[in-house]
Amino acid sequence: MKLFPRLHRRNSGELAKKRLKAVLSADRTDCSPEMIEMVKEDLVVTVSKYMEVDQGGIEIQIRQEDAANGRKKPALYANIPILNMGNKGIF
């Protein structure tokens, strides 16, 4: 039994925002959330070779950037928080 059921659904507004950002980035670029997730996993594997990253805090987005000809073009943005800079002794 949940003693404070309200606590478990607090801040659903934040959750809505997060889900919406993911779905809009997929809609706008015609790129599925699954693919974004795969890119994210590959990035984690690659970057983890060199430093320890916070896997839960990673944000991957495809944004529309202004291109030189006045049109928009998609660009991949990755925000990967680092927990520990030192390499893990691989090199």
């Binding site: 659904r9 607090r10 507004g13 934040e14 809505a16």
Partner: peptide
């Protein structure tokens, strides 16, 4: 915190 604010919507 259970609804996106007007600012959030405009921002998105």
């Amino acid at each position: 915190g259970d609804m996106m604010s007007v600012g959030d919507v405009v921002d998105i």
